[in-house]
Design a protein around this nucleic acid. Structure first.
Lengths: 212, 212
DNA sequence: CGTGGCCTATTCACTCAGTGAATACTCCTC
DNA sequence: GAGGAGTATTCACTGAGTGAATAGGCCACG
């Protein structure tokens, strides 16, 4: 629960209430993924339930009632633990691009895959130009560092795409093999014999390519 | 709903039931994020509700009852659309690393941030070696391409970490400024005056560093 | 021949994450 | 004194994901 840990971090500077936490989050991590108010309160609720945070009084100061939360010792320990522990580096495939290429080859044809990669490349380049501009006009080093992070990954994507365009034919071949292998195995499916296949076959029509 | 699109893609080769879809998924996208059986049926349910998929008969073939699903025209259109459209490239900050560095500087000190980056670097390097080995013993080009994708991103992370270690001092300064600015603004909080601050202050103790 | 274990196939109950709208109070302005 | 802007929280709902439960048929082994 990464959001929870961020809230713990923000609370480490002293008691806060939900609304302020949300604003602190936005001001300190403007590049982070947007955090809705609702999410803040839900997360605080869970943190409290888990004993990482306690209510530490309420009150109104020129506005509606508000509830302050503060770290417990367990909360401080959890935060320290989180800061101490490296994130598991990409245990499983992160992005959608690889999946999309495979599905394109599976459901359509290599042209679809190549076209997709071209369009994705354009989108990446555009975003990259945008980020580079942002970086130039950045007010803080934080913004620059955030932009650099994203740029590094866009660049990684671009390299991979270039590599992959060159491999599309080979990949397509591989996937076709798998498919025919599976098709030949056909009725073998279950291990049981073909008998008992009753109400199927209503709609064995459209098998073919999707190209749009 | 990326999982949904993958299922549409797998169904484009002909009617399938949930169990087989799960297996097809595992065999074609072994590097992808794990997909539980439950998730398959839940997603199929949503696809059916949205008219992208229909039940196309059921039957038992040496085993329990099973339900086949097939694409509808709307489903084929949705799949083609998905394959046609590039993914929005990283609209907001992806990874946790940046967040963790900022929180480390906020809640603890620069040493904590630097230590974290060192440990994270080790974890990344280890994973990278692992992936390189995997690549050498890879049976298919698909596996190689998947590994290359991940490696490219680990490499991007490593570059960014190196850059960031060098910037930690400056970042720490920036964050400290923000903090003192916020602290000075202090009671200003709401715009209302200080009156009405009632039941607070039960626990203004531990403010300081967390270092563990 | 019967029973215990494994594979097939689906469902269920539950938690977390995320979204958007609703509510309610106060202050400031016109 | 009415309306709008800002503050603060709650609610209802959808989706993603997990783990266990259920249930039938197959095969191996005693």
């Amino acid at each position: 629960m990464s959001t929870g840990h961020v809230l713990l971090g923000l609370l480490s500077r002293g008691p806060q209430h939900g609304y302020d936490l949300k604003r602190a989050h936005d001001s300190r991590l403007p590049a982070g993924k947007p955090l809705a108010f609702g999410q803040v309160y839900a997360t605080l609720g869970r943190l409290q339930r888990d004993g990482l945070v306690t209510e530490t009084g309420a009150g109104k100061a020129g506005g509606p009632e508000r509830t302050f939360y503060d770290l417990t010792d367990a909360g401080r320990a959890a935060l320290a633990e989180w800061l101490h522990t490296p994130e598991p580096p990409a245990p499983h495939l992160g992005g959608t691009m690889f999946v999309k290429v495979v599905v394109a080859l599976l459901a359509a044809d290599r042209q679809t895959a190549v076209d997709y990669l071209a369009r994705q490349r354009e989108a990446h380049m555009a975003r990259m130009r945008e980020l580079t501009r942002d970086k130039e006009s950045a007010a803080s080093l934080g913004e620059v560092a955030a932009a650099d992070y994203t740029i590094a990954h866009l660049d990684a994507d671009l390299r991979w795409m270039q590599q992959t365009v060159a491999r599309v034919d080979a990949l397509a071949g591989e996937i076709a093999e798998d498919a025919t292998a599976a098709d030949e195995a056909g009725g073998d499916e279950t291990g049981g014999d073909e008998t008992g296949e009753d109400e199927i076959a209503e709609d064995q029509t459209t098998h073919g390519e999707i190209t749009r």
